[in-house]
Structure formats: C-alpha cells, structure tokens
Amino acid sequence: IEDFFQCFQISCQGATSITTFAIFLCDKIEPALHKAVFERTAKDIAEDMQGKFPDFRGNRANLEVSILRYLAEQENFEYFKQYLTSPKEFFQSYIERRVKSHCLDESRRLEKFLDSSLNLLYGNILSAVSLSTQIVKDKKDREDKISLWLDEFCRELAEVINLPRSELKGIEHQEVTDIEFLSSAMKTALGDLRDRLKKELADADLSSFSRQPHTILAEHFSGCWEKCRFCGAVCSNTMQNHDGDHQVVFHRPQALTGFKWHGTDHFIIDICSSLVASDCTFRFHDDQQWTPYKKYRDAGPPVSTWNILPDSSMQAYWKWFVSNFRTQLEALYNKKFQGKGEIPVAWQRITKQEALSELERR
C-alpha cells in the first residue's frame, strides 16, 4: 500500500508538472496567437472586399470611377473639395469608409472574420501539438524529449504564428517523460486559451488592428499621386517614382484649381490638353515670365515633368460638376464664371446620369 501511494504521489507530481508546463507554454503562445488572428483577419477582409465589391476588383482607374460615382450621388461639395485637393487621402478615406460599412454592420461580420481566423489558427496549433507528439514519443532512449518536442512544435508553427524557440529555453529542461499526457494537457490548455480569446475578440473593433484592413486594400491601388499643376488631375501611372513623364488620360477644366484669365476674375474653363494646342500663355506667379502653353515645358518643374498631348475632348462629368457647383466654386476661389469663363449652355443641359454613363463607358 505504501508503494502504491508513493507511485501515486510521483504520478500526481508528474501530471502537475506537465499541466504547469502546458499552461506556461500557452501563456507564451497567447500574444503571438492574438497578433496572428488580427493579421490574418485584416488580409481576409481585404480579399473578401476585393471579391465582393466591383470598386476593388480592377485597377486604380476603375476605383476612381467608383469614387466619382459616389461623389456625384452624395452631391456634397465638401467631399468634392477634399477629393480635388487631397486625392490620395480621399481614396484612403473612401476605402476605409467602405471597410467599416462592410465589417461593422448589423451582421457582425468583423466578429465572424475574427472567429474564423482564431479557429483556423487554433486548428493549426493543435496539429502542431499532434505532429510533435507523434515524432517524439517513439524516441524512448532520449532524455531530452521535451527539448525535442519544443523544437518540432516551433518548427511546425513557423509559418502560422511567431513563436521564437529561444523564448522557451526556460522550460525545455522540465522532466517531462509522458509525451502523450503532454499532448492531452496542451489540448486542454489551448481550449481554455481559445475560449478566453474568443470572449476578448467579441469586443474588438477596427482600432484593434495594428495594420488596418483598409491599409492593405489601399496598397493595391498605390501608384503615382503627382497632380497636374494646371488642373489637378492625378497621374495615371501605377508605379511610384516611375520613369518618364507624368500623364493622364483626361485633363479637367482649370477652374477646378482656381485658374483665371489674366487681368480678370474670370475662371478658365478650358482643359490643359486643349490649351497646349492654342496660342495662349500662362504664368503661375506675377514675377514669372509668360510661357506659351505650346512650350509649357520651358516653364520648368513641375509642369516640365508632364506629357500633355493636344486633345480637345473633355469628360462630361466635369462639365456637369462645374455647372452643378458653380456657386460653390465661385465662393471658394472668389472668381466668376463670366467672360471667357462663361459656362456653355450645352454643359448646363448635361444630367448627372449622362455624366456617369459616359464616365463608366470609358
């Protein structure tokens, strides 16, 4: 009987030691798992939105059409002003707005995304426990079983979570011989960890992400953000710091940046690509010399870094915009749509739907 109690005591000590080891290891896993859940979820949200929303399926030109449609539908001049003055920031805020709308609606999508990531990663960790146990349990002649187990465990998890093997040096000399029991203890401790994180994630919002889903999504639409000095249109090149000149498919009425005809307070409603085919001249400051639009590169940077080809075609969208927001533009720049800047009657007849239909056909 005495031998039985002695063996039972040793067995209990062994079980306690293994349970303590499993809890300690899960405490190490927790911050790494927490971080991995948010990283995976951010990517999943970005991919989900690319798959479900036409705005995000194509290139930046496609996204811009969606943004211009949104601006027209809102008919809020302040939004237009933000887009025209800070296009990159407006693109990012538009993407962020769409992400928030998608994730934080009544269907609680964010919580579902986080749950899905947690369950997937939890399954990966359980698989790592099983594989490590399988490999090490048969090595009966080895005294460093726990160290071997940790080696295998960290190796299996390398592509799942960031759990450096070096951080586990303090527990690798534990006298754990029952690897099968260790596997069982780990599964119990991991189950508790999953339940704890699940409760925590239920209260998470988008501010909980170190790298936001909208940031990942916005990176797909990066490129050159240089604006035409004349009309403010953004360079269409998809590469930052690209070789060669900046260029756009369509320039805009120069009134959008406040340009006026010399000696008047009358807006210029012409576009840069038609002016470079004219006999008109320009200067940006009163102390500058006048430069013919045909030789705009002679004015030096920033206009000399642009390739503006002669083209008289103007998008109906901007004709509609100028007509629709005439009063706000006049107030913003303290100038008038008069004289050479008189808005043509044909522009005033363009409906919003006509402007959008033409925009989406291009």
Rank of each mutant, 00 (worst) to 15 (best):
S166C: 09
F259M: 15
V176A: 00
I179Q: 01
Q328P: 03
D298M: 10
L120K: 06
T351D: 06
R57G: 07
K199M: 07
N334Y: 09
E159L: 09
T133S: 07
L275R: 07
Q92V: 08
S101D: 13
D287C: 03
S312D: 10
K352D: 03
E156V: 02
K187S: 11
R165F: 03
K335D: 08
F90W: 14
I179H: 03
L182M: 11
L356D: 04
D48P: 07
S323K: 02
T177G: 08
S117T: 05
P54Y: 05
M49L: 14
F24Q: 13
E152F: 13
Q212L: 05
D192T: 07
E219C: 08
L329D: 03
S66P: 00
G300L: 12
A158F: 05
K319G: 10
F4D: 06
F21D: 00
G191E: 12
D205Y: 08
S107H: 13
Q353W: 10
R109M: 09
A128C: 05
L110T: 05
T281A: 12
S184Q: 06
Q240V: 12
S357H: 12
R283M: 06
L121S: 01
H242M: 07
H214R: 02
K352E: 11
C231L: 10
F4L: 15
R60V: 08
T264Y: 09
F38Y: 12
N324D: 09
N307E: 13
C280L: 13
Y70D: 06
Y94E: 10
T327C: 06
D192W: 04
R69L: 11
G244M: 06
R283K: 15
N241T: 13
A189V: 01
F38S: 01
E342S: 15
R297P: 03
S222I: 01
G58R: 04
G244S: 04
L182D: 02
L356W: 07
I268C: 09
L150H: 00
F259P: 01
K145F: 05
N237V: 10
T133C: 08
E180L: 13
P301A: 14
K260Y: 09
C280H: 14
N76I: 10
N324E: 15
A355R: 07
M314H: 04
S107Q: 13
R97M: 06
E180S: 14
S127V: 12
F325C: 03
V345L: 15
C26A: 03
G341Q: 09
L356H: 04
H251Y: 08
Q328L: 12
Q254D: 05
K319H: 11
S207E: 14
P253K: 10
F153Q: 02
V99D: 01
I268R: 01
S357N: 11
I269P: 02
Q328H: 12
Q82D: 11
W318G: 00
I125C: 00
R297V: 09
R60F: 11
L157G: 00
W318L: 02
Q92Y: 10
E152L: 13
W225Y: 08
S86Q: 10
G232R: 07
L63T: 00
Q174I: 04
H266G: 05
L201D: 01
I179S: 02
A346W: 14
R194I: 00
A218N: 07
F209E: 02
G191C: 06
